[in-house]
Design a protein around this nucleic acid. Structure first.
Lengths: 232, 232
DNA sequence: GAGTGGTCTAGACCACAAT
DNA sequence: TTGTGGTCTAGACCACTCC
């Protein structure tokens, strides 16, 4: 497969590889066009195209008269799409795992009953999971699920599939509402995220609807210093 | 200013212009590389670059052996819409006013130079405004503006029009990037928002691009207990 | 002045699609 | 076979930055 790859593409792959291997880190000066020209036995135009494209892809930064640098990755994570935290983390080349703290059936209180259009005291699934990037906690996900929409939620193995991914499978998404806020963590949240009580949290509340019913409601807590929402 | 524009950029502008004028509509076959080569008295490589870039920008679609077509525009949901804080507040039936703290010309530092694709030391507009809902501060808006895009930014009366509204008028929006985070306020921010230093802030960074240049970059600080982003 | 990237040319060979 | 785009070369001139 490498045989048929265009030269500019090979050069791009090489550079991305060097960055992923950690040979070139954020902010580092990388090889000049002249050096790459010799290294790949290619014309400067071809090298230039590779570097220019990586530059518009925000992987490199170029400055005339100075050189080409590995771009500073200013974004940690996603936009407000329906995204899976596990995919997000692995997409960044990091390792994801999660700790299941709770997975239980509870009785809906008044407020939840209203939200899910059920009766107070009816069954409702509840889960509490902490997601890790490598060994660092990055999200506390507290979730309530309507049993009518996902009756088997309670029997899933959330080491294998995230709640979000499972729910996307069983319940076709209709609409969602979200709220984003910056608040201090509760004591329990601070402990799970291993942060100080004074460290702000970025909190995303999201309720999704399926078949005209509230399917699931989630509160996702992120350490303000380790997680951002981005979009572009 | 058109004189100094690179040829590939002129070709891109020409094509975009033709599309905007309705000469070429969605799905239409446009001029071939050979024709554009003659029309602009340019080399094929230059024409190719223009068309290739417009193709990666999803403005054109190219098919080998067939030709180049105007792309079918897909919908893009902006989850965080381009909202005007003043409109938002008046839409809630409240009264908006703002206090101008700074409106000045500064010299770009290295980081800003990279962001705006200008040289370090070049002119850059800077403004700092606090927005109020009735008598309560609700947003500190710190903004940097590229003079090439909005040369008259510095002479506006921001009691009459918000920076955002003004910039939307003078610079057709091309794309934007967001970052959302939860962080503690600086001392200056805390004072302007009249909040305690321990109160988390919901901070939105937004950079918008126009004519392939960064037009403006803004940091908007909100008290975490008084402001949320919502959508539904 | 030396080194960097930004742009451009005038050719070339190739893969692909329509005729 | 003709015309299309995809890629590539070996030069060139320029603007910029740093020493």
């Amino acid at each position: 497969m490498l045989e048929k790859m265009p030269i500019f593409q090979k050069i791009k792959s090489y550079i991305i590889n060097q960055i992923e291997l950690g040979v070139w880190k954020e902010g580092d000066l990388i090889s000049s066009e002249a050096m790459l020209t010799k290294m790949f036995n290619a014309s400067r135009m071809t090298v230039n195209r590779a570097l220019r494209e990586l530059s518009t892809e925000q992987i490199l930064m170029r400055r005339q008269g100075v050189g080409t640098f590995v771009a500073i990755q200013k974004f940690q994570s996603t936009l407000l799409e329906i995204k899976n935290i596990a995919d997000e983390i692995t997409a960044r080349g990091q390792k994801h795992h999660s700790e299941l703290h709770r997975l239980e059936v509870i009785k809906a209180n008044e407020w939840q009953a209203l939200q899910f259009q059920i009766k107070a005291g009816d069954r409702l699934f509840h889960s509490l999971i902490v997601h890790f990037e490598n060994t660092t906690p990055i999200q506390v996900e507290e979730r309530w699920v309507n049993p009518k929409i996902a009756p088997n939620y309670i029997t899933q193995d959330f080491d294998l599939i995230t709640p979000n991914a499972y729910l996307m499978n069983v319940a076709p998404l209709q609409s969602m509402a979200y709220k984003l806020e910056a608040i201090p963590p509760t004591e329990a949240i601070a402990k799970m995220l291993r942060i100080d009580k004074t460290q702000p949290c970025l909190v995303l509340h999201r309720t999704t609807h399926s078949n005209n019913q509230a399917a699931t409601s989630a509160i996702m807590w992120h350490p303000g210093d380790r997680y951002h929402f981005i979009s572009g």
